[in-house]
Structures are given as structure tokens and as C-alpha cells.
């Protein structure tokens, strides 16, 4: 039960949505964009999210796009997570997404909601961080296209009146070797101890992480260390920790020490899988 009430709008175009937002905000309202709405519903129930108007963007055709256009994969922000496995155009995304929440919930949770939500794991962003994707963001001045890395720092840096419409990823990335692993202490559903996704491009390994810090990130400094081929895997993993952002999560899912222990193992496993056994 959500105790407060709000207005509900379901615009059919991007412009309608952003106009609505401006109108509502200019009247002193607190509108919020809504796609899957799972976070707004569950946190709203606990008064951790408040809004007086939701603008449901899932009837905007662009947010439902899922397919290739001009050698790019376009991922609409209101696509439910479940679709990435049903139509698996982007295996890394499919694999990462299928570990979020549970199956039934993934039919409702959207990729945009996962990326832009408050719950800080936001694992849905990892595949896009690794693939030099662009984001299409709608705002009062229309839709702008930006490289993800320019507008992502711990979270997607959106102005209040903006919303994520699509992500665009070059098709060539779909073919690249990748790994994505979500580690939890002793269960198979739900929040991670940590998630590591990795992609090999031109012989260079890229890494992105969730659950290590209270935000997802990709670190080029860590990647440099992790790709220093002369060093043993474990040494590389430990050396890369010098560049870990802070703080390391220390919560009920696991202590910071244990997380680093598991992270080290996970990275070593990834290196083994990508580069082969060290003893050989």
C-alpha cells in the first residue's frame, strides 16, 4: 500500500513526457518518470520515495525499441529485463540482467529503472559501461546523445527533467568474448555480494563492477593493472585493488574484507578463463 496519492500520466511521445514534466514541476509539483515502477512502488510504500505525479514512459515507442539499427543495438529504457533473454541480441546484457531480482520481477523491472534507480547495485549498466555505449537522454531541449562514460559517474547524471530513452551499442561488441558473474554468499536470488562483468576487446580486458562499492563502476586504472601480462593473476588482482574506488561495501551482504577476498578470486577466475591456466 502506498499511502500517498499521485497523478498518473502515460504520454505517447518523448515531447509529451518532457513537456508534462516541465508543466508539473513549474506548478511546484514533484513529478517522477516511471517505467517498471518497481522501486517507486516498493520504496514509496516505505516513504523512501515521494512523488505527486508519475509520468509512465512505457507507452513511448522509443523506450520499447529492441533491435539493430545502422549497426547499433538500440535498447529502449522501458524494456523489461526478461526480454534480454527472450530475444538475446546482447549476450552479456542477457547474462547480467538474468541475475537481477527474480524471474517474475524481471518481467516488470525495466533496464532504465534498474540503471536510474536508488538501489545502488544498478547492475544493468555494467554491459553498457564495457561496450562504449551511448545514451539517448530526453530533456526540455529534446533528445541528446552522449557517450555513456561522459554522463555516468556512479550513476547516470540526469537533470531532473531528463529521462533515459535508449542506449546504443555498436553491433561489433556483441561478438566479443565476455564474462559476467554475480556472487552471493549462499543463495541464488537477490542482491549481490558483488557482480563482475568483463569484456575482451582487441586483446584487452575490460572490467566493470557492482556490489563492491555503493555504486557500479568501470575503472580503466584497474584494467591497466589487470592487463599487465607479465604478472601472475593473483598479483594483478591484488595490485588492481590500489585503484578501487572507496568505500568498499561493508554491510549485511558481507564485510568489506570478505568482499575483497571474493573479488580477488573472481578476477583470478576471469583471467584464467580469458588467458588460460597459469601453469600451462
Amino acid at each position: 500500500m502506498i499511502s500517498f496519492d499521485f497523478e498518473y500520466y502515460r504520454p505517447k511521445s518523448i515531447k509529451e513526457a518532457t513537456d508534462l514534466y516541465q508543466n508539473l514541476a513549474s506548478r511546484g509539483g514533484k513529478p517522477i518518470y516511471y517505467s517498471g515502477g518497481t522501486e517507486i512502488i516498493t520504496l514509496g510504500r516505505l516513504n523512501r520515495v515521494y512523488t505527486d505525479a508519475v509520468i509512465d514512459i512505457k507507452s513511448i515507442p522509443e523506450t520499447q525499441t529492441w533491435g539493430f539499427h545502422n549497426n547499433e543495438l538500440i535498447t529502449g529504457s522501458a524494456l523489461p529485463l526478461s526480454i534480454f533473454n527472450e530475444k538475446n541480441y546482447f549476450p552479456l546484457l542477457a547474462e547480467t540482467a538474468r541475475e537481477i531480482a527474480d524471474y517474475t520481477s524481471r518481467i516488470k523491472i525495466t533496464i532504465g529503472g534498474n540503471i536510474c534507480g536508488q538501489i545502488f547495485y544498478r547492475e544493468g549498466i555494467l554491459p553498457f559501461l564495457l561496450t562504449d555505449s551511448d545514451v539517448l537522454i530526453a530533456g526540455s531541449k529534446g533528445v541528446k546523445r552522449k557517450p555513456l562514460k561522459e554522463v555516468f559517474d556512479q550513476k547516470l547524471m540526469l537533470e531532473r527533467e531528463e529521462f533515459l530513452v535508449q542506449l546504443a551499442t555498436k553491433k561489433i561488441y556483441m561478438e566479443m568474448p565476455f564474462l559476467s558473474v554475480k556472487k552471493r554468499q549462499q543463495w541464488k536470488t537477490g542482491y549481490p555480494l558483488l557482480t563482475v562483468a568483463s569484456l575482451k576487446k582487441d586483446g584487452f580486458l575490460r572490467f566493470a563492477f557492482s556490489g563492491v562499492c555503493p555504486f557500479p563502476f568501470r575503472s580503466e586504472q584497474m584494467e591497466t593493472v589487470l592487463n599487465s601480462r607479465t604478472q601472475p593473476y593473483e598479483e594483478r588482482a591484488l595490485a588492481s585493488f590500489d585503484y578501487l574506488p572507496q568505500p568498499i561495501l561493508n554491510d549485511i551482504e558481507g564485510s568489506n574484507e570478505y568482499r575483497l577476498f571474493v573479488l580477488k578470486n573472481t578476477i583470478v577466475d576471469f583471467l584464467k578463463k580469458f588467458e588460460g591456466d597459469e601453469n600451462k
Binding site: Y8, G36, G37, K108
Partner: peptide
């Protein structure tokens, strides 16, 4: 045709 948690849906949706 799909399972849906009715606590994660606004009736209006």
C-alpha cells in the same frame, strides 16, 4: 500470458 507480481503493479497499469 506472463506471471506478474500484483504488488509490483499499479492497478492503473
Amino acid at each position: 500470458q506472463k506471471p506478474m507480481k500484483s504488488c509490483l503493479l499499479l492497478a492503473i497499469e
